[in-house]
């Protein structure tokens, strides 16, 4: 993955990696396969098979009148001209482009603060900020849905203090930010903990050395801390990408409160669900699922291939 940034990697402990697999004794090969076998089966059964099956299903179309017919790639040509699918995909892309930097910045800032401040209060805060990670997305969305309610939640009171009208985060205009807030709230603490652990792993002598050289706090942060935790930043980038690609739970729950702002085609996942379970259109739903899965698979692979360094990621 992206995590193979290996400039500072310690010498590999595996010694005979240069040995060609073909020359490995059959027995060792067999044992290797035995170890990955159970996972391999699950992988084939619940990832490869569904994708292949989705591909197969996506070649057909079932209409209310006329029944099922073989249409080859028509579902895909439809998907890539279907405003519902494209708008949903575009929403997810826009959302990721804002969400991921925001999340990373907030969690980085919090981690840096907690790395400096070592009071009891800071330790307590660290734990509390992490807590939302333990909340299922469904429950998180539900809680924030209540909080967003203008005359039911506290926003009205808070804004009322300043004589202003509370913004309606469940309206069409602001739902983007409403969701942004929920997802950030849920995940920032977890990312913060990852970054914090990485910061704690940095050898403090580096800071002393830098101080002797006349570096201030800001310079230490920018020149030492952040560069040294780049791998952790990449890790949370991966987590955040996985999260946004799966985007379903929060909008699905908020839809009960904001049907006008969140359509059934809000994200590609929701659209696939709606096609399959709302409209009995499993073939088209499968096409969307497959398109999503396959596109991600290929993109990741291209990305890995393009960014591989010293061919190390396949080690």
């Amino acid at each position: 993955m992206t995590l193979q940034i290996t400039e500072t990697a310690p010498p590999r402990t595996e010694k005979k990696s240069r040995r060609k697999a073909g020359k490995t004794p059959l027995r060792e090969q067999l044992i290797g396969w035995l170890f990955i076998g159970p996972f391999g089966l699950v992988f084939l059964a619940f990832l490869v098979a569904p994708l292949v099956y989705a591909l197969y299903l996506s070649l057909f179309r079932k209409a209310m009148i006329g029944g099922t017919s073989f249409v080859l790639l028509e579902n895909y040509t439809k998907a890539f001209t279907d405003p519902s699918f494209l708008d949903g995909a575009w929403f997810v892309i826009r959302f990721s482009l804002v969400l991921i930097p925001v999340q990373m910045l907030i969690s980085l800032a919090m981690a840096l603060i907690l790395d400096i401040v070592t009071s009891r209060f800071a330790r307590f805060s660290r734990l509390m900020i992490f807590l939302p990670y333990a909340i299922p997305a469904v429950i998180g969305a539900l809680m924030w849905g209540f909080l967003y309610s203008k005359n039911f939640g506290p926003l009205g009171d808070v804004f009322g203090l300043f004589g202003a009208t509370a913004p309606d985060f469940l309206s069409r205009d602001l739902i983007f930010y409403g969701l942004l807030n929920i997802v950030t709230w849920q995940w920032a603490g977890y990312y913060m903990i990852i970054l914090y652990a990485a910061l704690q792993g940095i050898d403090p002598t580096l800071y002393e050395a830098a101080r002797i050289d006349g570096a201030g706090n800001w310079q230490i942060t920018l020149r030492i801390k952040i560069p040294l935790i780049t791998p952790a930043l990449l890790l949370i980038l991966v987590f955040a990408l996985i999260g946004t690609l799966q985007f379903f739970n929060e909008p699905k729950i908020l839809r009960d409160l904001a049907a006008g702002a969140i359509g059934p085609d809000f994200t590609p996942n929701m659209y696939a669900y709606q096609q399959a379970f709302g409209l009995a259109n499993f073939n088209y739903g499968s096409a969307i699922s497959f398109a999503l899965g396959a596109v991600v698979f290929v993109c990741v692979y291209i990305f890995l291939f393009a960014t591989r360094k010293r061919g190390s990621f396949l080690s």
């Binding site: 990832l47 569904p50 989705a54 990408l241 690609l245 379903f248 696939a272 669900y273 991600v296």
Partner: peptide, 9 residues
């Protein structure tokens, strides 16, 4: 990175 949600249907 293949989203688990894409496999559900």
């Amino acid at each position: 990175m293949v989203p688990a949600t894409a496999l559900v249907i």
